[in-house]
């Protein structure tokens, strides 16, 4: 049922909780696999390059950010792979696109838990994803 999972993360605490739930889900039947997806969206490239100097350093920082997630999943004895998507217009669109183009049994995603005003300005990634992804979605609060 839930063998091949897509776990979309942004490095926040919400994603940590989402990762835990993804592990729970993947171990239900055993033999599950998880693909971790991180999207470098919008102006993230610009602010990362400014903050870390160049693209290589920015990539290294992202790898460091992803490591705890990979370790979490590896420790649970689950096979995983990591995908980082670059240059996208919006994180939501990239997640939707990647999810629908590949064969996943479910998508697990954390909710940022923004307020009304923040959601209005930033837009809710998880809400958009829920609406357009053609598979079961587990939104972790």
């Amino acid at each position: 049922m839930f063998k091949h999972l897509l776990l979309a993360i942004d490095g926040s605490d919400h994603s940590k909780r989402a990762a835990q739930k993804a592990i729970d889900l993947a171990t239900l039947e055993g033999n599950g696999t998880i693909e971790i997806l991180y999207v470098v969206a919008g102006n993230k490239s610009k602010s990362d390059v400014l903050q870390y100097g160049d693209s290589d350093s920015a990539s290294r920082k992202r790898k460091l950010m992803l490591t705890p997630f990979e370790e979490m999943i590896a420790q649970a004895g689950i096979k995983y792979e990591t995908t980082v998507l670059h240059g996208s217009n919006s994180a939501a669109e990239s997640i939707i696109d990647h999810a629908n183009k590949n064969d996943f049994d479910a998508l697990v995603i954390g909710s940022r838990g923004l307020g009304t005003v923040q959601t209005m300005v930033l837009g809710s990634v998880s809400h958009k994803v829920m609406k357009h992804v053609k598979m079961p979605v587990l939104m972790v609060k």
Binding site: S45, V49, D54, S55, V84, H86, G87
Partner: peptide
């Protein structure tokens, strides 16, 4: 050169 680094990062190429 700053912009080139940003485009490097956005396209994941050198």
């Amino acid at each position: 050169l700053l912009t080139a680094s940003i485009v490097d990062d956005m396209t994941d190429t050198d």
